[in-house]
């Protein structure tokens, strides 16, 4: 196992623990069919590895059979000098492309959020409705 894969395993473990704490605190606990995540590009989470690790690690748990749906958000920074947003090129260049100011405020890309879960409803398959 490489370091990166192990990292996803740990990240998944952390996700499952957080979900479990939340689930335990609910009055009703229907079966969870899908977990929606919002994951920023400027985090160490690799969505594909996370999905894989999630499938493996939820076997025989309250999340058995649940799938992950990951929405990625881009890295967007705000340059105070130019008063404008820009998209740094991850791995290459983070400073403002116009004035070379360093990356200061990050407006998007650091998210690691559990947005919502979908419950499995018997007979109906997956129900998905926001309320």
């Amino acid at each position: 196992m490489t370091n990166d894969e192990m990292h996803e395993t740990d990240m998944t473990k952390a996700l499952i623990v957080t979900l479990h704490d939340w689930w335990e605190a609910q009055l009703e606990r229907p079966k969870i069919a899908k977990v929606h995540l919002i994951v920023g590009k400027f985090t160490c989470v690799e969505p594909v590895s996370l999905e894989f690790a999630f499938e493996v690690q939820t076997r025989n748990t309250f999340l058995e059979g649940a799938t992950l749906e990951i929405q990625e958000t881009p890295l967007i920074a705000f340059c105070h000098r130019c008063q404008q947003e820009y998209r740094p090129e991850i791995g290459i260049q983070y400073a403002c492309p116009d004035c070379r100011s360093p990356m200061d405020d990050i407006r998007s890309g650091r998210e690691l959020k559990i947005d919502r879960v979908e419950y499995a409803t018997e007979g109906l398959g997956i129900a998905d409705c926001r309320f």
């Binding site: 990240m11 957080t18 994951v39 559990i114 947005d115 919502r116 409803t121 129900a127 309320f131």
Partner: peptide, 18 residues
């Protein structure tokens, strides 16, 4: 009766660790 089919969480993935 309103059947709950999904629940909004909006919590950090690392909430338990935090």
């Amino acid at each position: 009766m309103h059947l709950t089919h999904d629940a909004a969480l909006g919590i950090n993935l690392l909430h338990a660790n935090q």
